[in-house]
Amino acid sequence: MKRFKGLRLACLVLGLGFLYLPILSVIVYSFNESRLVTVWSGWSTKWYGALLENQQLLSAAWLSVKIGALTATLAVVLGTLAAYSLVRFKYLRGQAQFELSTAAPLVMPEIIIGLASLLLFVSMEKLFGWPAGRGQTTIVIAHTVFAMAYVTVVVRSRLAHVDSSIEEAALDLGARPVTVFFTVTLPTIAPAIIAGWLLAFTLSVDDLVVASFTSGPGSTTLPMVVYSSVRLGVSPEINALATVMITLVSVFVLIAGLVLARSRDK
């Protein structure tokens, strides 16, 4: 395709500029000394110092990290099992419905997942007394619903490219199915599992809507703190926090990308 060369270059520059300039503006203004966000008055890192003293924010961040790690781990276990059964047991009854149900959370609006999960938890508590109140556990379960869908997609596409004859050879040589899974299948799909874990973690840590519905008193996550502060307007402290988050996520995504790219090259 050698046509429209100048036009294509312009599209790339404009498109990527549109995607990155707003993020850049947040990063640049996080180093602004003035409390008035839009007035530039010199370089400073004082807002990063203020972040470290904000106890409410730090405890919310810690809770988000804990919920993210638990969600990602649960989502990876369930998502890998789902992907494995979708790729290897295509003959099972109900696989078409199963496939649809695993993919549906990918496009379901968060507000519906949030409301539906909360109503489930409230009704379950009335019926069985579990979960008693809402907090970390209920957020993890609700997050796993959508995080698992992403893990399934990533692991499934990797698994589809794995030669099943190696697994069959191991079975022929007398290995038990569980042994085959842990010694043959798991090592080959490990990069997808790591990438899936990182993606699930990122999605969970980022979520505001589902967490707002399923959290209880005393379980305020980082996006909930950011949201209530952002509603009041732009602040340099949030700019600094945003910069920290953008940096961490970029590093995570780059690692996940490299892990997948390297495993493909092999």
Binding site: G15, L16, L19, Y20, P22, I23, S25, V26, Y29, V37, T38, L199, T202, D206, L208, P223, V226, Y227, V230, G233, V234, I238, N239, A242, M245, I246, V249, S250, F252, V253
Partner: peptide, 19 residues
């Protein structure tokens, strides 16, 4: 490069436009 902003916080990206 196109997908990277998608993984950075949704809330933060909307917030960027407020400023």
């Amino acid at each position: 490069f196109v997908m990277l902003p998608f993984w950075t916080s949704f809330l933060i990206r909307v917030y960027a436009w407020m400023g």
